[in-house]
């Protein structure tokens, strides 16, 4: 860890200005990921701008939306009775992530901004395009059991990155079509969840579409039409406290056994939460059945590409999609 300056501004504006005007400044909230990165000298901010005391800690019911402040703890959302009633998918996804101790520290905004757990990113003895652009992707020809199968380059180039985004919450937010509210030096804007994280596209060092100095203030989730038929399925190497090999967030609005609306997103398969638009299209208006779920899974897997150690994801992912849909639809 390198020496750094620590400041605790008293207003949002001040915090944003401190980061916007200093390329070496970084926001810190729960710090559950940033501190690790600093210990490994992956992140070396010259100034930490502590935002923990800013007034971004409310869970509010608004007209047509649930609004969760960026500094609400993961554990607070997960144990919130009204969130459980209105958006159970969020609670399931949160409880599938990390450990109780981490959820007690980690914030909603921070959860979205956590960085990949690719081992090549964390060890400076390895090349990594996300850490040092142009140094190469260690995982591409190396150990890639955990890595992406979607949004990966057909031909590897010197800027490739096949890391996956590790957040469970983001997958559920993507499925629920949440909006990320951000405030920056030039004012406030809203980013649809699906546009918040990005594919590497030769700039893998950039995880999100946030501009310099922009701070997440809240996420807004539309009132769900699917509180009943949701499921977050997480396939992992141990029963708890493990990143997803593959995860699926499924939400269905079913009327008389017919699918009115459906939302599907996957985790552990891409550089961002991976929305399954084509599968959603196929399912909409269909009668609930395992056969149609299987067809949707096949459609969802089109374009997936495996590397040396992650071909199993091509088998696990469609199974997981079917299983999540079945569980969401209470189809046994």
């Amino acid at each position: 860890m390198k020496p750094f300056e620590y400041v605790r501004p008293s207003t949002l504006q001040e915090a944003i200005e401190l980061v916007a005007t200093n390329p070496k400044a970084q926001f810190i909230a729960g710090g559950t990921n940033l501190i690790d990165l600093m210990k490994h000298n992956i992140a070396a901010p010259g100034k930490l701008v502590d935002i923990n005391h800013l007034p971004l800690k409310k869970i509010e019911k608004r007209d047509g939306f649930l609004r969760i402040g960026a500094l609400v703890l993961n554990s607070e959302v997960a144990s919130h009775k009204r969130v459980l009633a209105s958006h159970p998918l969020l609670v399931q996804a949160l409880n599938a992530g990390a450990s109780g101790q981490l959820r007690n520290m980690a914030t909603v905004g921070g959860n979205l901004l956590q960085r990949t757990r690719c081992p090549y990113f964390y060890d400076r003895a390895f090349p990594c395009n996300k850490r040092i652009p142009g140094s190469g992707c260690g995982a591409l020809g190396g150990i890639n059991r955990m890595h992406a199968i979607f949004g990966v380059p057909e031909k590897p180039d010197p800027r490739s990155c096949i890391a996956v985004h590790p957040s469970d919450l983001s997958v559920a937010l993507s499925a629920l079509e949440a909006t990320v509210w951000v405030q920056g030096p030039h004012g406030e804007r809203q980013i649809p969840m699906n546009d918040f994280h990005r594919l590497p596209n030769n700039r893998p060092e950039q995880d999100t579409t946030l501009a310099n100095g922009e701070l997440i203030t809240a996420v807004e989730i539309p009132d769900a039409v699917f509180p009943k038929h949701v499921h977050y399925l997480k396939v992992r190497d141990r029963a708890s406290y493990a990143f997803a090999l593959v995860s699926v967030a499924a939400a269905l609005d079913i009327d008389q056994n017919r699918i009115k609306t459906v939302r599907l997103a996957m985790g552990g398969v891409a550089h961002k939460p991976w929305r399954l638009f084509e599968a959603e299209k196929l399912l909409t208006g269909q009668t609930v059945s395992e056969t149609i779920f299987r067809q949707a899974a096949e459609v969802a897997m089109q374009g997936a590409r495996a590397f040396e150690h992650n071909a199993y994801k091509l088998k696990v992912a469609p199974n997981a999609i079917v299983q999540a849909l079945k569980l969401a639809a209470s189809l046994s």
Binding site: R117, P119, Y120, Y122, D123, A125, F126, G142, I143, A242, F243
Partner: peptide
Amino acid sequence: RYVTSDFAS
């Protein structure tokens, strides 16, 4: 060199 270097991996 090991790529497993912590309790996450």
